[in-house]
Design a protein around this nucleic acid. Structure first.
Lengths: 231, 231
DNA sequence: GTCCCCTTGTGAACGGATGCACAAAGTGGG
DNA sequence: CCCACTTTGTGCATCCGTTCACAAGGGGAC
C-alpha cells in the first residue's frame, strides 16, 4: 500500500508565513528588476527585513525550491510564491465607499500590478455617483449585489464610514462574498467561513504613540504614575 | 531595605497586548456614547471581537482596574488605556507625500479625534505645494527638517512613492524623529531605537487572495499542483 | 572521481501568546 | 451579619512561532 507523505501544502501553511510571503515577493521582484538570477536566503532575508532562518523555514512550507550551495532561482521563486498566493489568477475587487480613502485605493497602482482588478466603485452619496475615478464610473450602492454577481467579484474592500460598514458587509456576504478588506474603524461581525482583514490607520498611530511615550520617559515610570501604584 | 515589587508597567506590556488596546478603546468609546456606565469583560470582549480571558489578561497588565462581581467602569477604563497609550497628550504628526493616500490621511478624522494633530503636509512636487488640504497648506519637502524641529513633530507618516521613502526616512531620523508610519511599499532600513510600522494595502489583499483560493479548491490541492510535487 | 566549500532544509530548544478553569473578591438581599 | 451570586485576576497547560545549530546535499576545482 502506497501512503503519500503529507505535503506541506496539505498540512496548511502557518498564518505568520502567509503574511510574509507578499514581502518576499516584493523583495524578489526588486531583485529581478535589477537582473539578479539567483539569491541566497541570507541576501533575500536582508532585503525583506527578516531573519534568514525564518525565511528558509517559510519557504520550506511551500516545497523544496532552493539549491544547496547556490540559493534560490529568483524567477522560479517568484512564480512559486505567486502561485501559492493565488496571484496567477485574476481577482475582481469592488470598492465600496468612494471618499478620500476609496479614491486613494482606486488609484493605487499596487493593486492592478498584482492581479487585482478593480471591477466596481460604489457609493451611497448621489453627489459622488457618476464621478469618473481611475477609469471607472462610480455606481450607486443599490447595485451592489448585481455588480458582485455579474462581474465575478470575490473580494470586497469596505472604505465607508463606520456606521455603514456592517450593513455593507451583511449585503456582500449575502451575495456570496467571503473575503473582505475593512478600512472602516469598526469590528465587523461575520459568519464562519468569511475572512475579514482590517486595516486601521489610527490604531497604527496609537501603537507608535505608545512606544514613543516609552522612549521619552526612558522606559521607566513617570513620577506621577507612582501615586496610583500603591492604592 | 524597601524592595518595590516590579509593576506590570515596569516589566513592560506585551506587544500583542499593546496592539489590542486601541481596539478596546474604540469599543469602550462606542459603549460610552450609548451611555453605558460599566461593562463586563464578557461584553467588552464581544464588542472588541476577542476572547474574554484574553481581554482580562490584557487589562491586568495595566493594573487592577475592574471590580469583581461588577465589571469595569467605562469612563475610568477609557482614561487608563488612553493614558497608557500616551493619548492624553498631543502628538504632532507630519505627513510626507501628498498624493491620493496622503490626502486621504490628511482628511481622516480618526487622527484628530485621538490626540494626533497634523502639523505639516510636505511634498516634492511643485504642482502640489501650495494646495490647501484639510485646512493646511502643502509645503515643499525642502522644509522637512525645519517643520519637524519647529513644530515639535515626533511622528512622521510616509506616503511617498517607494523610491523616495528611504530618503525621507533618513532625513526625518537625522532630524530626531524615532517613530515612522510607512505606507510606501518598501522595507525601510533604520537604526536601532527607531520604530517603523508598515501598512501595506496590497499585502492585505494578497493574504485575502491566498485564503480565498484555498476556499475555492476546498482546502485540497488542485490536480495541476500534483505535477510539481514529486519532481 | 574526489575533495572542499557553500547553502539549504530541518530537528530541537526556547519564548511568548492563548485559553481554560478556578480561587479571590466584591455586591446585594434577607 | 451571612450567604448566594457575579465577575475579576491569574496559575497552568498548551500551542504557535522564532531562532539556533547542524546534518544533508549540491556545485565546482583539480
Amino acid at each position: 500500500m502506497i501512503r503519500r507523505i503529507p505535503s506541506a501544502r496539505e498540512r496548511g501553511i502557518p498564518d505568520a508565513t502567509v503574511a510574509r510571503l507578499p514581502v518576499y515577493l516584493r523583495a524578489l521582484n526588486g531583485l529581478a528588476e535589477r537582473g539578479t538570477a539567483t539569491v541566497s536566503s541570507e541576501d533575500l532575508a536582508l532585503a525583506a527585513g527578516v531573519n534568514s532562518a525564518k525565511l528558509r523555514k517559510d519557504l520550506s512550507h511551500l516545497g523544496s525550491y532552493g539549491t544547496r550551495g547556490v540559493g534560490y532561482d529568483v524567477q522560479y521563486l517568484i512564480y512559486q510564491i505567486s502561485r501559492e498566493l493565488g496571484l496567477t489568477q485574476d481577482w475582481a475587487v469592488a470598492i465600496v465607499g468612494v471618499g478620500n480613502l476609496g479614491r486613494a485605493l482606486a488609484n493605487y497602482g499596487g493593486f492592478v500590478s498584482r492581479g487585482f482588478r478593480v471591477a466596481g466603485l460604489l457609493d451611497a452619496d448621489p453627489g459622488v455617483v457618476g464621478d469618473r475615478i481611475a477609469g471607472l464610473v462610480v455606481e450607486h450602492i443599490d447595485g451592489l449585489e448585481s455588480v458582485i454577481l455579474n462581474r465575478g467579484v470575490s473580494i470586497v474592500v469596505i472604505a465607508t464610514p463606520a456606521a455603514a460598514a456592517q450593513q455593507v458587509a451583511d449585503r456582500v456576504i449575502a451575495a456570496g462574498v467571503t473575503s473582505i478588506l475593512n478600512f472602516a474603524p469598526v469590528v465587523l461581525t461575520v459568519p464562519d467561513g468569511v475572512d475579514v482583514r482590517k486595516v486601521d490607520l489610527s490604531i497604527e498611530l496609537q501603537i507608535l504613540a505608545f512606544h514613543e511615550q516609552r522612549k521619552v520617559t526612558g522606559g521607566a515610570m513617570l513620577p506621577e504614575d507612582w501615586a496610583g501604584e500603591v492604592g
